[in-house]
Write a protein that binds this DNA or RNA. Structure first.
Lengths: 155, 155
DNA sequence: TGCAATTAATCAGCGCACTGAGTATTTCAG
DNA sequence: CTGAAATACTCAGTGCGCTGATTAATTGCA
């Protein structure tokens, strides 16, 4: 009788929310290209020529995961990976024409999917939804990265 | 220049929220036992002797995933799996004493973690947070399972 | 210059999550 | 009572997500 109600556990709700989104993405957006893959492509549309690590930072994926996502996109010829001549450690990433085409197509479908996903909420509630989730996620990330220098300084 | 702002994509926010939770769980609750594993154990505390499929339904895991989670808990001797003598297809699940002990310990830590996780929100906001996420997740799940019979009936 | 620290990427290993196919058992219609 | 349908579980395959260890290149200090 010491069981807990999972409906009051934010972590459990977060997982269910993500699963629900995953399924909707699969049916309404694409079966080949996943949501994280789209996020990576989107980052490269915004800033072509980024290196792997920075892309990971932009979309919130760690070094290992970003490497795998990129290798899949690269295998499908949606992006090119070129060694940085200035810094031999880096790989610079850039979408191919096909990658740009796919990104454009998925952008439209994603917008449609977001509407369906958020349909249960009124416009005001949608705003609150974004705000609350973002604040919780940001705060949790700050717990790990004790960034926040109070003044600009050289470490 | 056709790039999109991921901060307005609920799927992307859901993923970030879940990752943030995962990290906090790891540091504040347990490195050995994951959040889905705890959810399974919790379901078995509430209803000992459930079969695998039903547990999966309770915690929101599909047949394959639940099988793996259970096999790990079983390997660690946190639960027992017994063939149902009444129905040879089913495996009935029950926590061991050690499983009960672990569940008790993690219940306390999970409560603490939830407080930290939700700390950025006021109590009223926390209520709204739960409500909004639950409504979106429920609606998306209903899109897949067109359940909802209007009257009680024997199919 | 010359070697130590830092940095970008890779690799191995674990765990969650889904689909589609296959096996064993039970149920149910004829 | 028998064979088809349904059900519970397993297995193979793919992809996300993390940590810890390793490799290669660059930077920076003495």
């Amino acid at each position: 009788m010491a069981a807990v109600d999972l409906a009051t556990h934010p972590g459990h709700l977060a997982r269910r929310l993500q699963q629900a989104h995953y399924l909707l993405w699969n049916t309404m957006v694409s079966e080949e290209t996943t949501s994280p893959q789209f996020a990576v492509m989107n980052a490269l549309v915004a800033e072509p020529g980024l290196d792997q690590r920075t892309v990971g930072e932009r979309v919130g994926l760690d070094r290992s995961t970003i490497a795998e996502v990129i290798s899949r996109l690269s295998r499908r010829e949606l992006l090119h990976k070129v060694r940085d001549p200035q810094d031999g450690r880096r790989s610079l990433l850039r979408l191919t024409d096909e990658g740009l085409r796919v990104h454009r197509k998925l952008t439209v479908r994603t917008a449609r999917m977001n509407q369906v996903f958020l349909a249960p909420l009124s416009p005001e509630e949608q705003t609150v939804f974004f705000d609350l989730i973002r604040r919780v996620a940001d705060a949790a990330e700050d717990l790990r990265n004790p960034a926040e220098p109070l003044v600009a300084q050289q470490t």
